[in-house]
């Protein structure tokens, strides 16, 4: 590349290019890199909010305290459980929806729109709606369950530790399967028709078509969808915040919710920053695992 900028014209072009890119780079540095570095710096020291006490480096003190905090391990467990339960279900639902929407049938446009609806609405809004439906005393689910005689006592959906987690997973799957479907649908539409025609000539069944042609060619889109959704699930905040506020007790308190409480309720930004950095590492590790496992088979 060094040879390409030797001539004056090339050099000028190169400079023009740099001039165009620099403002964007600066903005990205300011709004992305700076906060990330700042979080890491905060997590290794003590400082006061108003700067009245100077920053003091304390090494791994906050991380050591974190390792001793039961509530942190609980939040980590909750976050991983939620991710492990919701992502596979979302993926299965997403592939199913995408295959369905890829078929041609009357009203396909409307069906595609309808599927996208849950994803397009703000999570906080959806979640409040679900909270009403889950309500023990006047919610939809218990009204149906009680009137049909399935149960004789109302089910305490959000008040039981296991049920609360499952209820949260259901909302996540309902809401974000359509996002998975959208990305996978785009992938489906880029698969050449000829492959299926060839397959049909060879006498493949629909299931074989799906396994041998569709799925392998969807690996890219699935990887993208998995990474984006897993990152989302690992940082889930609005969902537990609005549905259960982390309860009952702390059964649905995710890492983000815990970090939020530490920072804004207890005003402990250094300790909170340590939680966020750990969360960052978890997400980073998860992304690496996905990329390595799904790419190596190529």
């Amino acid at each position: 590349m060094t040879t390409s900028v030797t001539s004056p014209l090339d050099r000028r072009r190169h400079l023009t290019g740099m001039a165009f890119v620099t403002p964007t780079l600066l903005v990205i540095t300011a709004i992305l890199v700076y906060p990330i570095l700042q979080s890491i710096v905060l997590s290794f020291g003590t400082s006061s909010l108003d700067g009245s006490e100077p920053y003091q480096f304390v090494g791994l003190k906050h991380y050591a305290a974190l390792a001793q905090t039961e509530r942190f391990w609980n939040a980590l467990g909750v976050t991983l459980t939620f991710t492990a339960l919701s992502i596979p279900l979302e993926l299965i639902m997403g592939i199913g929806l995408a295959v369905l929407l890829n078929e041609s049938f009357r009203g396909k446009g409307i069906a595609r729109l309808a599927v996208l609806f849950p994803w397009a609405l703000p999570t906080a809004l959806n979640t409040l709606m679900w909270r009403w439906m889950y309500n023990t005393d006047y919610g939809l689910f218990n009204a149906v369950a009680l009137q049909s005689g399935v149960v004789d006592r109302p089910i305490n959906w959000l008040g039981d530790e296991t049920l609360a987690m499952l209820s949260m997973v259901v909302v996540a799957v309902w809401k974000t399967s359509s996002f998975m479907a959208l990305i996978i649908l785009a992938g489906l539409q880029s698969i050449p028709r000829e492959l299926y025609e060839a397959g049909r000539m060879d006498g493949m069944t629909r299931w074989q078509e799906f396994r041998e042609i569709t799925l392998p060619l969807l690996k890219g889109p699935i990887l993208v969808a998995l990474i984006i959704r897993s990152m989302d699930a690992l940082r889930t905040f609005e969902l537990p915040f609005n549905l259960t506020d982390g309860g009952p007790v702390t059964a649905t308190e995710s890492l983000s919710l815990y970090a939020y409480k530490v920072m804004f309720d207890f005003i402990e930004f250094n300790f909170g920053a340590a939680i966020v950095v750990v969360q960052f590492l978890v997400i980073f590790a998860m992304s690496l695992i996905y990329i390595l496992t799904l790419r190596n088979k190529d």
Partner: peptide, 16 residues
């Protein structure tokens, strides 16, 4: 008291 008292905020209790 109902089991749901454990998830009740003021308005939930008021509604019941």
């Amino acid at each position: 008291a109902p089991d749901s008292i454990l998830n009740m905020r003021p308005d939930d209790a008021r509604t019941l």
